[in-house]
Design a protein around this nucleic acid. Structure first.
Lengths: 131, 131
DNA sequence: CTTGACCTTCCAGTGACTGGAAGGACTAGA
DNA sequence: TCTAGTCCTTCCAGTCACTGGAAGGTCAAG
């Protein structure tokens, strides 16, 4: 299967698929004409990558998950640990974003938002003392 | 004021401060020995950048905010629009992260996480049909 | 036999820094 | 005066995960 068809199957751009090969996440065979030739197993790996990336795992985490995936003696605890660490990371990010949101919306609430120049958002950014 | 002292004042690495200069966010003077020489106004700009970056504004948004900051005829509505757009962006990100979190924690909940190899997280990533 | 779609490789750019090398300037102490 | 150590300079390369584009080879249809 050529890269274009593989791309359609797994819903990834061809550029991305070639990039994954470049960083050794998979090694498709080559046809006589030099074109990459994807087997069902390659498609499976790409699918796995697409899914794990879309769940927010980094490339290196995906590499680890893939190796666990190949490992018939893996312990499910190892996989679960990675997932739990990712959940903790997501929680941290959400917390941070919530903090930013609250600060910004407080500032925006106090800004009248008309054609006059005075603006509490600017005051805050410039470090002016509050009245 | 040398860059090191400026860095301490505004709590930014010297590397970052030089980078901001490289992308034309400020133009400190130079002392006779070639060292950068930061005025109080430069410090103020850096402070402004530090604060707006830490609120999640991109460099280009900071550039725009800085130009509004200098503009005595700016309308507070312009500033508020940027803040509101940023809030919307944050909301989108939070929503996305919540979705990921819920998927991941559902998967992790169903994984027994012991020394056996079978693992619903892996099943999901590999696209296996649910039992 | 040409057109157009598809494939190849290679190089460069993104955002916002960060690290490091090589070398000049300055300060304090012996 | 010398030296050690800290600060400063510029320049180049690397990060992450792609993405865009150029130049050129391959293939199927008409």
């Amino acid at each position: 299967m050529n890269i274009g068809e593989a791309a359609l199957r797994v819903q990834l751009p061809t550029k991305t698929i070639r990039y994954y090969e470049e960083i050794d996440l998979l090694r498709p065979g080559r046809a006589a004409n030099g074109y990459r030739d994807y087997s069902e197993q390659d498609i499976h790996r790409l699918q796995f990558l697409q899914r794990s990336r879309s769940l927010g795992f980094s490339i290196e985490e995906c590499r680890l998950l893939l190796s666990l995936y190949q490992d018939r003696n893996r312990e499910s605890a190892d996989v679960k640990d990675i997932a739990l660490a990712k959940i903790a990371e997501i929680d941290r990010k959400i917390g941070e974003l919530r903090g930013l949101r609250s600060t910004l919306s407080k500032l925006a609430d106090h800004c009248h938002g008309d054609n006059r120049p005075d603006c509490p958002i600017m005051d805050e950014l410039s470090g002016e003392e509050h009245a």
